[in-house]
Nucleic acid binder design. Sequence first.
RNA 1: GGUCUCGUAGCUCAGUUGGAUAGAGCAAUAGCCUUCUAAGCUAUGGGUCGCAGGUUCGAAUCCUGCCGGGAUCACCA
Length: 723
Amino acid sequence: MDIELMLKKAVLNAVGKLYKQTPDEKLIQIQKTRKDFDGDFTLVVFPLLRVSKKPPEQTANELGEYLKDNIEQISEFNVIKGFLNLSIDKIFWISYLNTVVQDDNYGFIKNKENPKTILIEYSSPNTNKPLHLGHIRNNLLGYSVAKIIESQGDKVYKVNLVNDRGIHICKSMLAWQKWGEINSYLNWIPINNLDSNYRSYLNKNNYPKEYVQFCKEIEKYCTKIISGYKTGNVRSKLGGNEYRSELKIIFKKIRNRGNSCEQLKYIIDNVDQFINKSTFKDLLRKRIKRQRKKVESLEVIKELLNTNITPDRIKRKGDHLVGDFYVKFDQEYKKEIEELVSKGQTEEDAKKNAPLILKAQEMLRKWEAKDPEIISLWKEMNHWVLEGFDITYKNLGVDFDKTYFESKTYKLGKKLVEEGLKERVLIKKEDGSVWVDLTKEGLDQKILLRSDGTSVYMTQDLGTAHQRFTDYNADEAIYVVGNEQNYHFQVLKIILGKLGFSWSEYLHHLSYGMVELPEGKMKSREGTVVDADNLLNEMTLTAEEMSRELGKLEGYSDSEEKQIIETIGLGALKYFILKVDPKKTMTFDPKESIDFNGNTGPFIQYTFARIQSIIRKANDKGMKLPIELNSKIKISNKELQLIKLIYSYPEVLKEAANDYSPAQIANYIYDLAKEFNQFYHDHPILGEDDKSISEFRLHLSKQLGEIIKSGMGLLRINVPDRM
RNA sequence: GGUCUCGUAGCUCAGUUGGAUAGAGCAAUAGCCUUCUAAGCUAUGGGUCGCAGGUUCGAAUCCUGCCGGGAUCACCA
């Protein structure tokens, strides 16, 4: 039963009876009474004055009297200025709570009539660099909105469109070809810039297996020889003391390099020197025949060091490795531009003429011509990146029903354009390029096919939109894409409309604001990006530190500990991002923004854990929840307030689904948790003597816990039973 | 320059189908752990809702102009 609807009808009825005139339904404004006034629902009477033709206070009083006398659930009313505050009988609220407790999917809509099929695209990464903070917002939003819409009974398909082709990936490929030898890579990659995983990995001496083997071999041979000299087993004619001292020097050099990381670099840098030393080689070859194979294996290792790096060899996440090369490309490209400028070219020309960019463009052409060598490199590098993304997605807790690749879809849309030309919706210019004229819509002209007949981004998006709607027979499609593309989607929608697709009006752009750092925008070229994997890691570390400090991790096994800190760290991050209205630009301060007190994820998780603790204790006591609550008990204002909050949950979900706004759920849950903590503070639950009241409070708490879990679940945030 | 968008407490954000005295958290200060988890609770201070007009019973919310920040306006994606 919807009490608000009932009230509305009652008021309509009352006005008709009292003033002999039925007002427009829109004039009946029922809203929840504000906290600082008595009452549950408020009727704003100002709009009704036209009908009543009496002053506001009098009108309100007359209506109040009538409603109190005629509506069973209305127990009290009061009038302040032009506001009629109505109080609903507490018996109603208690019985409402009763029905809610018995509903396992409270707030969710099941078996909706005519459910819609809705596609939601999010993430849409480029395969040339790892995911960053902006992607985190995108992914969390996309996943959460999908869940929220699903909760309202519609069928949702989550879709990812991976941008795996284009000049950007060629840049990484080219840099890999040029500076990808392991030797070279380890030389230019700034060790300090490597992520913490990699650093700790090096410090643990877990070198790539080839290096480990290499170092071991060298060391083994050398000690063997040296000890041979010492014990006199090696005859002097085989080498003499000169070898011995030489080997000693090599060892000393290696060992003087400080940490293992630098030792490794030193060995790699000087591998030629070691292996080519005739002394060393000859010694191994001639004098220790049995070791012949090992000498050869040294050659193999040398070979390996001169081959190109892969994620496997260095144990670096593939997306990060490819990202390294993207950055490297940019650095070298910049150098070339500077050089050309110093030789007298304008910057603009230099950007076009730099050899590197020309090569990258050539590579793209080869790719389009399906050059086998390029294609296989492209496949390999994309594979690395996608493997890396999968890990990040898994850590974030997001997934997809289907992944589209631009390499397969980029040619789509041409047909649509051709048809558009036939229909004379589009125009062909003299040079053969195809445009759409949007000047009537207050926009510019937009190109759809280049003069050489190839498609642009827009063409492809037209095609994928069409394909998706047909693939899924969808009713709506939502694109979770940053607000920098507002113009693009505006145009996309108009063009699809012009091409005659009626579904174009059901294409929504969920445009979210950028995530900025305190210093301003994130810029990958300037290194001011917050890497997604790093951030997730650091959140967990902070959570661990915090929990230890508070002594919350005592008495847990390692795996329980790990689970708790991950839940908390991730919860803090996800909540922080999702509580902000999607469309707003948000600021993220890595050091200060992430808090565990106040309006945060951990605060809510903590509240949930508290409730679970009470329930555990109740079970221990053998307390059972009654099927039917005693509706005659007295309940406090705080308790009433909590029931009213529970009452509004379904409405919050509905609004959040309509507005694509997880933030509304986040803020609601925060409210709920805050109110609960206040209630908890001064209402004993298990310690209450009156059994009916104790049962009621336990009931109430349990239900609040359920809603916290359910709401947080829609934000993809887990809640721990204890913390 | 055109178009779009945002501007609320020192900071991060709620609040906008027009409704009562504009709310939280962080930071600051002062309190509360022999009782269900103190990642909690209570209290204090902190505001020209960017500015100026307009619409009306009533404007942070709607309209216009201005100021300030951001995005976008490629035969890039």
